[in-house]
Design a binder for these strands. Structure first.
Length: 423
RNA sequence: GGAGAGAUGGCAGAGCGGUUGAAUGCGGCGGUCUCGAAAACCGUUGUCCGUCAUUGGCGGACCGGGGGUUCGAAUCCCCCUCUCUCCGCCA
């Protein structure tokens, strides 16, 4: 959520930045500013009336104490009138506030000044690429064939028990999952992130706090009877730890990591390029989140970027880093880097991580602040990144490391898997 | 799931329906004292909105959340949420 005083003071800048995100409703800005004006004047009117009512009530109390009941009755009558007026006003005021809020939350975050313009994924800019594209044997096959050949992941079983996109991991496949989770978590902890195990369902306030609501309600599984949502990412419960929190400046940055299963309905995005592990309704991910001081949030973003790059390096996967263009960025993000690994049998780049700085957008929405050296309360910055999401990593590992004798496990992982080859 | 108790400022803990934004203690901050520290003493110490104003004044809101009664509610009533105790069930 953007700050209204900022919009008021920098309208042209805001419009220009939103254009980079291909924002289609510039008129919302004026509506917001108008509504805010209206809100202020209604509030002023209301406050004045309340002030009068308050002082009258005090007088009435005094008069009763002095036994001047008749005089008190006169004031009571007057106060009743005021009360009627404030009742009407408060309805109007609340409606205005609600409307203002509804409009405000429809305005996306401003992209950072370095964000390139663009409409879709093809306009993203590759800022880094490393690792050798593997040369596969002639008879190489995509991971969905490998997993049935070695019987390590079972989609049919998932279909039977739950539905499409909810596979079973079996034997060495399950063990590989566990290995990756432990590896990613250990690396995050080494990098200074505190490990937590979050709830896998969140309430409305939390879904709202990180921006899933009201925008992306259809992407989450809902537990209707209890008004809960299955988390689409651990970002939601972790970031919401800090909802309505005022931190001391010296506590920043706060670094938190969590492994969780993630649940996504992926409504409408089911199509041809989503075979096998490429897109699932339930998948595992290790997430890293930072609450940062605005002065160094972009340094921390670079740090997180290096962390993720290092994980991919250790797994020996060829990868590239994209800086997302305005049109491909998320609603809440100011700057996002996507990480893609090359999955050699599919001959496709698969997105495995997204690392973003949200600046104060989420913080404003969830009232996450810190007290600076002068005792002033300021909005903090929030950042997060996947480090990493498992299924596509598994897909690339399987495809890139396949041999006639089986699938080789990267050395780094062998301590965790306890085996070197899936055969 | 059944029965009962409760939810107050960073924490602990008071609070007859009327100068209570809220006693008191602890903690935090500033000061006196000290070579320094501790102790002691003095002062200070919430958030949000608005408004004027050179880091201050004034007005309004907030005592789990939402409604209600009243001239006036932390204090009375209703609903919701959560916590605790006992019983039942259970990984």
């Amino acid at each position: 959520m953007l700050l209204i005083p900022f919009i008021r003071a920098n309208k042209d800048l805001v419009l220009a930045r939103l254009a980079i995100k291909n924002f289609k409703q510039p008129e919302l800005l004026d509506e917001v500013l108008e509504l805010d004006k209206k809100r202020k004047s209604l509030q002023q009117e209301q406050d004045d009336l309340l002030a009068e009512a308050n002082s009258l009530a005090k007088e009435i109390g005094l008069l009763f104490k002095q036994g001047q009941a008749a005089a008190a009755e006169v004031l009571k009558a007057r106060n009743s009138e005021i009360k009627e007026k404030t009742k009407e006003l408060s309805v109007l005021l609340n409606d205005t506030k609600q409307l203002l809020h509804d409009k405000l939350v429809e305005i996306p975050n401003l992209p950072h000044e370095s964000v390139p313009p663009g409409k879709q994924a093809s306009d993203n800019i590759t800022v880094h690429q490393e690792g050798e594209i593997p040369v596969l044997p002639k008879n190489a096959v995509p991971h969905w064939d490998l997993i049935s050949k070695y019987d390590i992941i079972d989609f049919d079983l998932g279909n039977k028990v739950t539905g499409a996109g909810f596979p079973f991991y079996k034997g060495k496949g399950a063990r590989l999952q566990r290995a990756l989770i432990n590896f990613f978590l250990d690396e995050a902890v080494k990098a200074g992130f505190q490990e937590v195990q979050p709830p896998l369902m969140v309430n409305e306030d939390s879904a709202y706090g990180t921006g899933q609501l009201p925008d992306k309600e259809g992407q989450m599984y809902t537990i209707g009877a209890d008004k809960l949502f299955m988390i689409p990412t651990a970002e939601v419960p972790i970031t919401n730890i800090f909802r309505n929190v005022i931190l001391a400046e010296k506590e920043l940055p706060v670094k938190t990591t969590a492994y969780s299963s993630c649940f996504r309905r992926e409504a409408g995005s089911w199509g041809k390029h989503v075979r096998g592990l490429n897109r699932l309704h339930q998948f595992d991910k290790v997430e890293i989140v930072q609450v940062a001081h605005p002065d160094n949030s972009y340094e921390l973003l670079e740090e997180m970027k290096s962390h993720v790059a290092n994980l991919l390096r250790k797994l020996g996967l060829p990868f590239r880093i994209l800086k997302l263009c305005g049109g491909d960025m998320g609603f809440t993000s100011a700057l996002t880097y996507d990480f893609e690994v090359y999955s050699a049998a599919q001959q496709m780049w698969l997105e495995v991580s997204s690392v973003s700085n949200f600046e104060s957008f989420q913080a404003n929405r969830m009232k996450l602040r810190y007290k600076d050296a002068n005792g002033q309360i300021q909005l903090a910055h929030t950042l997060n990144g996947s480090a990493l999401a498992l299924p596509r990593i598994v897909a690339a590992l399987l495809e890139n490391n396949q041999t006639d004798d089986g699938i080789n496990i990267p050395e780094t992982l062998q301590d965790y898997t306890g085996f070197a080859v899936i055969s």
